[in-house]
């Protein structure tokens, strides 16, 4: 409806611009300017030029962090999407009552504080934690297992945090798939597996790509969970950036990595926009 308005009406909307421009001006001063500062510092500190960006290709410590971060993000996204897809699919195909309960558990996890969740995993997994105590009491293991302060702990915590972010968009996407198509394929002689793989899966592909990129983007910049569950041993890029700035005062290196992170994320969003309508992804329209 909004698109079909005539010129005369559109002229009448000019009075609404201040509503947009006032918040935008505030955002420019208190948000975009700080971001611009980060980008600016990456090219000027400690001396002007691209020296900071050269570190991406020459510094082994930086490269190790990049490798660790990408590895953890890929593993986290793959596991999250597989589990998230399963949950979203099942939620859509059970009775209304069960659907409500399953959504309740997903949303419960979604709304609980990130710090509380990271803490719960530490309490559960550390060497004298719940899991190790129980396993040792039952004589399953003699020595406590190393479950946190390593990549395993980080992935367990990150997948746990990300699953609702995968389930909710996948669920919204699958809801739009015509429920008669799979029975139709079955009626035409396809096996359940064929009907799923050749009809349902391709139709849910935009949701998979959209949710997958969303989860991957969140994982890339994740700070809290890796910092707590990695315990300083498994360091991802966000924690590394913080260390550069707070501990060693290397603003050049820190802001360079921050800028690179920003560029990668916007490239991925552009990629996502090709597959799914971003307006639908973010809830408007």
């Amino acid at each position: 409806m909004a698109e079909r308005r005539g010129k005369a009406e559109r002229a009448g909307t000019a009075g609404y611009w201040p509503l947009v421009l006032a918040p935008l001006a505030m955002l420019a001063v208190f948000y975009l300017y700080p971001l611009a500062q980060v980008v600016w510092l990456s090219f000027t500190v400690p001396q002007p030029g691209l020296a900071n960006y050269a570190l991406l290709f020459t510094n082994p410590a930086v490269q190790r962090i990049l490798w660790t971060t990408s590895r953890i993000c890929v593993v986290t996204t793959a596991i999250t999407m597989a589990l998230g897809y399963l949950v979203a699919y099942v939620i859509l195909h059970v009775t209304r009552r069960t659907e409500a309960w399953m959504l309740f558990f997903v949303l419960l996890s979604f709304w609980i504080s990130i710090l509380v969740r990271a803490f719960a995993w530490v309490a559960l997994l550390h060497s004298r934690g719940v899991v190790n105590t129980l396993l040792m009491d039952w004589h399953v293991i003699g020595q406590p297992l190393a479950l946190v302060r390593n990549e395993l702990g980080v992935v367990i915590g990150m997948v746990h945090y990300m699953i609702p972010y995968a389930v909710l968009p996948l669920y919204a996407n699958m809801k739009g798939i015509d429920a008669r198509l799979v029975p139709a394929a079955r009626g035409l002689g396809a096996s359940p597996a064929t009907a799923f793989l050749r009809v349902y899966l391709p139709l849910s592909l935009p949701g998979i790509v959209g949710a997958g990129i969303l989860v991957f983007i969140f994982s890339l910049g994740f700070y809290v969970t890796p910092a707590i569950l990695g315990g300083g041993k498994t360091v991802m890029i966000a924690e590394y950036i913080a260390l550069q700035v707070v501990e060693t005062l290397q603003w050049g290196l820190g802001t360079m990595l921050a800028t690179s992170l920003l560029v990668i994320i916007f490239l991925m969003l552009a990629l996502m926009a090709r597959f799914v309508n971003p307006r639908r992804m973010f809830g408007a329209a």
Partner: peptide, 19 residues
């Protein structure tokens, strides 16, 4: 205006701190 939701927290944390 949606940027603050998408930019990783660590990136704007640096910016906020500086400014």
């Amino acid at each position: 205006m949606l940027a603050p939701m998408i930019v990783p927290p660590i990136v704007h944390a640096l910016g906020f701190y500086r400014v």
